[in-house]
Design a protein around this nucleic acid. Structure first.
Lengths: 126, 126
DNA sequence: TTTAGCGTATTACTCTACTAATACACTAAC
DNA sequence: GTTAGTGTATTAGTAGAGTAATACGCTAAA
């Protein structure tokens, strides 16, 4: 179930996208499953239907879901795979940012890796 | 020399902050050096003085520079060290983001490191 | 053909961030 | 004391993002 954080600076439609992506990745919605209708989701999340519509529209643009006219929104087959790929790309962006910072600090590879490992430890990644 | 990218979504004052931080880190401005006056910099970068003022003000709030009333802005001693620390904190933020993504992908530490190394290679970090 | 349920389009309101114009107040040097 | 150089305060304009109200058009099923 998606939870909206009203006080977050992250826009609602974005939170919905991320929530849906999570549910698709975790298998709550499988290939060709129907998503909740825009109106239903709007009611249950207590937001305007247009806000849901925007989230769905962006997911459709990204190819994650597709619409059947007059019916509803469905999960694109392979979208879980695509989302994994997208997540990898997100990770790469962060890593590139890290590298840019490291360069301005004149760090070499070994030093960057040391910092990386330290944070991994701190965050208890197994 | 700072260069403003008009078409960037990054606000001008932010670009100025980052540019100045770079120049302080790289030693263009050393401890207690005077920065260009707000007006001069505004003219040379072709922006409004208030925009420069905002950048300087934020740097002053962060302790990177200080003002002498009626005179100008100067580099706080140790600010280069502070900026290094700040850069490390920025890196940590990115790493934490990476970890969050990795968790949603159910990756373990080894897999995360493998991706990290791959991007390091690709970006030719020595 | 009617109806209930879909997504869509249009319009407008609100809020915030950014930038700018302009006038002000302080300091140092002459 | 005047002047030229500092940063500061006030106010306003502009643009963009986000959200909502409302009405519309399509589809499937009764």
């Amino acid at each position: 179930m998606i939870r909206i954080n009203e006080s977050s600076p992250v826009p609602i439609y974005q939170q919905i996208i991320e929530g849906m992506q999570r549910e698709i990745l975790s298998g709550v919605f499988a290939a060709d499953d129907r998503l909740p209708s825009i109106r239903d989701l709007a009611i249950s999340l207590k937001v305007n239907p247009n806000t849901i519509a925007r989230a769905y529209q962006e997911m459709a643009n990204a190819g994650t879901i597709y619409f059947k006219r007059g019916q509803g929104a469905y999960v694109t087959p392979k979208s879980a795979d695509d989302l994994l790929e997208q997540a990898r790309a997100e990770m790469a962006k962060h890593i590139i940012e890290i590298i840019a910072i490291a360069r301005s600090m004149n760090l070499d590879r070994q030093q960057v890796r040391r910092i990386f490992d330290a944070v991994l430890d701190q965050q208890e990644v197994k």
